[in-house]
Design a protein around this nucleic acid. Structure first.
Lengths: 225, 225
DNA sequence: GTGTGTGAAATTCTTCACAGCG
DNA sequence: CGCTGTGAAGAATTTCACACAC
């Protein structure tokens, strides 16, 4: 097809973006594998998604990308996603709230891999900052703006936003934050188009499962992945 | 018990269920509040969602529920969601993988409130089980099936599924598990219609945010919104 | 045969608009 | 007036089906 009618820069459905992120994670597992190609069917099975869904996602983003008959070249697809989604830069991150979840993330380097690096931890409790043993720099929360700006920190994980979540958010935004993963129970929303928030509430997630189970038992099994 | 007089709405959109779970969490914050009613607009603002969306969600589930002109009675709405979604029973839960995230969840009782109770922790590393100090019962992973069944554990949080995730899943299912929240990096899917899984991958979530930011910059550069 | 790419159809979800009640 | 409830319109997303390439 030589027609220049490809809608590459049209809007890509959010669910597609999310799935492609998971595809990327999956492809990373094939680093030292003899396998060099993968089919949409394989990807779909691993992710619990239909194969045509995966093909559509990839097509939304790049138009043609695979070799018909033998699937996608793993390295090539990985690089394409990397380029398009900006995974080729290292990103700095910080953790806000050094309770047990926060320190777990800090110490186990749960979110460190090739792409992300935790540069700082924040807590409003000075005692905690003094007693914690870690080689990552710790600061009181009122220094968020400066530290985020000076260390070019783009991402924050919030495990506890204290009694005044909006102040934490304001400081992050003033420092130039771009993305926030929020584990605290208060829902965070961003009114800025260039700052994105992902809320994850464990209790809420449990409740969602309970609700699905309850509704499922009342109504006869309806489709779910 | 309420008799099931579901109107012609047999299927409730999944996103509606999820939002209503958040509404429920929100209503719980009004426990010792003088406020006795709340409007869809208020709820929407707190959740970052349009008011008609909230009204629709509530209407999907109960038909009429609010008092026109003055909003929803907080207690009444809370009770209605509770009934319909099965939040009126206590649920037992367990944690699989007692690495730092697992123990953080265990010790901070992160998922304990009125509705959920952690009864057990599992790890394949016997050393860990012996050295951990906690008043929650700990077991090796090969006992999952028995413990889950004997203690009527309905929910599991997986922080680490080891090298053979499918064995863990099988044991949980054999024990009669109903819902799984999975923090481990390998995606888990359920082929049983009555068992629900929620996957949360922190790295994946970060990547999603990075992708949104990258795509957002491209779109802005192109002069679109 | 295997497996991608993609318009078109089907489905699911959100927004609109307004009736009707307090 | 302010606010809910809901059919209908509209938008977003998924599924289908099949042409085409290896």
């Amino acid at each position: 097809m030589s027609f220049d009618k490809v809608k590459r820069n049209r809007t890509i459905p959010k669910p597609s973006i999310l799935r492609l992120c998971k595809v990327y994670s999956l492809l990373n597992e094939y680093k030292n594998n003899t396998l060099t190609t993968i089919s949409s069917k394989d990807i779909g099975q691993r992710l619990g998604v239909a194969s045509h869904n995966i093909r559509k996602d990839i097509s939304f983003l790049f138009g043609e990308s695979g070799t018909i008959g033998s699937g996608y070249d793993i390295e090539k697809l990985k690089n394409q996603i990397e380029q398009r989604f900006g995974f080729n830069h290292k990103r700095n991150a910080c953790i806000i709230g050094l309770d047990s979840l926060g320190t777990a993330l800090l110490n186990q380097r749960l979110i460190i891999n090739d792409n992300f690096k935790i540069l700082a931890g924040f807590d409003s409790n000075i005692n905690r900052l003094e007693t914690l043993k870690t080689d990552i720099a710790l600061y009181p929360t009122h220094e968020i703006t400066d530290v985020v700006r000076n260390h070019s920190i783009e991402f924050a994980v919030i495990t506890d936003a204290g009694k005044e979540p909006s102040r934490i958010i304001d400081r992050l935004i003033n420092g130039g934050i771009r993305g926030i993963v929020n584990f605290s129970s208060t829902n965070i929303t961003s009114d800025r188009k260039d700052i994105f928030v992902s809320n994850f509430d464990l209790i809420g997630e449990f409740r969602y499962l309970v609700a699905l189970i309850s509704l499922n038992s009342v109504i006869n099994a309806d489709g779910h992945d």
